[in-house]
């Protein structure tokens, strides 16, 4: 082999090594670095949540609370005056800073100790921009607030950044999602169905995507995993 050819082969070899290192670093970023960053952000949100919601939040982490207790809390909610409910609605509609915790979400499978999708609470941040979704699942600002009339829609990463919705496809009809709002009130949604839609199918974020007239929770994520060619969408309806 001539000297020039040897140099060319050596150059190609170095290029391939550099490309390999770059790909390796990217995998470290995607599969490790982003998860650590999101885990830290969720810890910070948990601290913020315990300070801002504090004593009024008695439901996060209590996924196995009995139906009787749940009924009592509903009765308490129902016995409050109209003025207070109006005040609740007003506060609920107050804008929350982008990236701040807007709700805590917990998946529950009735009759099972093991929750689907994710163990423990996920703190939902306001906004679905790249920066917000680095912190955890994000609330589409144009949709209803948690527990409000209409469609409370949330986007979350399927892979990377903690992959909060990695197993979103595990949800099945009858599973529950407990959403605790910033006032510490818990709203229970029951899973109705899941669909795969295109990236432009924003009708799922409409005020009543199921056409049932009931307040809805809509969860969106990438489909399939490691690609955003499509979106997996799960619909749930409020039951309490």
């Amino acid at each position: 082999m001539s000297g020039a050819a040897a140099r060319a082969v050596r150059g190609v070899g170095w290029l391939l090594i550099a490309a390999g290192v770059l790909v390796g670093l990217y995998l470290v970023y995607e599969l490790l670095f982003t998860n650590v960053a999101t885990s830290r952000a969720q810890d910070a949100l948990a601290d913020e949540w315990s300070q801002s919601v504090g004593e009024s939040d008695r439901s996060v982490g209590e996924s196995d609370r009995s139906v009787g207790e749940r009924d009592r809390s509903v009765e308490t909610e129902g016995s409050r005056g109209a003025d207070e409910r109006t005040e609740d609605s007003r506060r609920q509609a107050e804008p929350v800073d982008l990236g701040a915790a807007v709700a805590a979400l917990q998946f529950v499978r009735p009759g099972s100790q093991r929750p689907p999708v994710h163990e423990g609470p996920l703190f939902i941040v306001e906004g679905v921009g790249f920066a917000e979704l680095q912190r955890g699942p994000g609330h589409y600002p144009s949709t209803a607030p948690p527990g409000g009339d209409g469609n409370f829609a949330v986007a979350g990463h399927r892979t990377t950044f903690g992959a909060p919705f990695f197993n979103l496809d595990d949800l099945r009809a009858g599973d529950e999602v407990h959403v605790t709002d910033r006032r510490g009130r818990r709203h229970t949604y029951e899973i109705r169905e899941q669909r795969v839609v295109g990236p432009g199918d924003s009708w799922v974020l409409g005020p009543d995507p199921l056409g049932s007239g009931v307040s809805t929770l809509t969860l969106t994520t990438c489909e399939p995993r490691f690609s955003d060619a499509q979106r997996l969408v799960v619909f749930a309806e409020m039951i309490t």
């Binding site: 679905v128 921009g129 790249f130 950044f161 199918d201 979106r231």
Partner: peptide, 28 residues
């Protein structure tokens, strides 16, 4: 530079966007 700028840009441009429609751009 890679972890702070290049990879995040590549990620948000080509890899993962769990949102629908133009919601992400609008929210940001």
């Amino acid at each position: 530079v890679l972890f702070g700028f290049v990879f995040p840009w590549f990620d948000r441009t080509f890899i993962s966007d769990p949102t629908l429609g133009s919601m992400r751009a609008g929210a940001s």
